[in-house]
C-alpha cells in the first residue's frame, strides 16, 4: 500500500495538533505504520501550526515531501495557502471557510480574500467547508477541527468504527458527545 500523506495546518489554539493526533491514532488502530510530526513555535497561541500525518505499510520520514501530500486539511484559509505547495498535482485541499487575520506587521499587504478561488485555479480538488460555522451551531467553535476531520474521514481508508473508538479513547468524557456530533457533521459536509 502506498503511503498516504496528510498535512493539517491551522493557527495556534485551533486544534491542528489534536486533529493530527486523532488521525494518527485512528490510522494506527487500522493497522497501518504511522508517523506524525508536528511543527509549532514559541507561544501557545496565534502562530502558524502544522502537522504531517503519514501512514502506510512502512513510513520513515515524519514529514512529506513538497508535492507529495494527498490531503491538506486547513483550519484557516491563509494557512491553506501557506502549505499548498506540499499538495500533489490534483490533490485534495479541505479548507475551513474561515479567516483569522494575522497580527499586522508593518505595511502589510491585505489578507488574500480569494484563497479558495486561487487554490481551485491551481488545479487542486478544493473542498471549502463551513466548519467553524457548524461548530458554533453545535455549541463550541473549538470543535471545527473535528468537523474537518469528519470531512476528511470520508476520503480515507479507515473504518468508521475505528474512528469512533479513537474519539472515545482520546477525547475526555465531558467533551465526547460534542466531538462525536462534530465528527458526524463533518462527514455530512464532504459532499460524498
Amino acid at each position: 500500500m502506498p503511503v498516504t500523506n496528510v498535512l493539517i495546518a491551522g493557527v495556534g489554539g485551533q486544534g491542528a495538533v489534536l486533529a493530527s493526533e486523532l488521525l494518527a491514532l485512528a490510522a494506527m488502530a487500522a493497522g497501518k505504520d504511522v508517523k506524525q510530526g508536528e511543527f509549532h513555535g514559541v507561544a501557545q497561541r496565534g502562530g502558524a501550526v502544522f502537522s504531517h500525518v503519514r501512514f502506510g505499510d512502512r513510513v520513515h520520514a515524519p514529514m512529506a515531501r513538497r508535492g507529495d501530500v494527498d490531503f491538506l486539511l486547513a483550519l484557516e484559509k491563509l494557512e491553506a495557502l501557506r502549505y499548498a505547495h506540499f499538495v500533489k498535482p490534483g490533490g485534495t485541499v479541505i479548507v475551513n471557510d474561515h479567516k483569522v487575520e494575522p497580527i499586522r506587521v508593518g505595511d502589510q499587504r491585505p489578507y488574500p480574500d480569494d484563497a479558495i478561488e486561487f487554490l481551485k485555479g491551481k488545479g487542486f480538488n478544493v473542498l471549502a467547508v463551513q466548519a467553524t460555522e457548524k461548530a458554533v451551531e453545535l455549541g463550541n467553535h473549538r470543535t471545527a477541527n473535528v468537523v474537518l476531520l469528519g470531512t476528511l474521514a470520508e476520503s480515507l481508508d479507515i473504518p468508521l468504527e475505528v474512528w469512533e473508538a479513537t474519539l472515545r479513547e482520546r477525547i475526555p468524557e465531558r467533551l465526547l458527545s460534542l466531538n462525536q456530533r462534530a465528527f458526524a457533521a463533518g462527514r455530512g459536509l464532504s459532499g460524498a
Partner: peptide
C-alpha cells in the same frame, strides 16, 4: 533544488505568534 512555495503568486502573510 527544493520546490518553492506559492508566495510568488499570492500574499502569504506571515503569522507571528501573539500574546493571548
Amino acid at each position: 533544488s527544493v520546490p518553492a512555495d506559492l508566495s510568488e503568486d499570492v500574499a502569504i502573510l506571515p503569522r507571528p505568534p501573539v500574546l493571548c
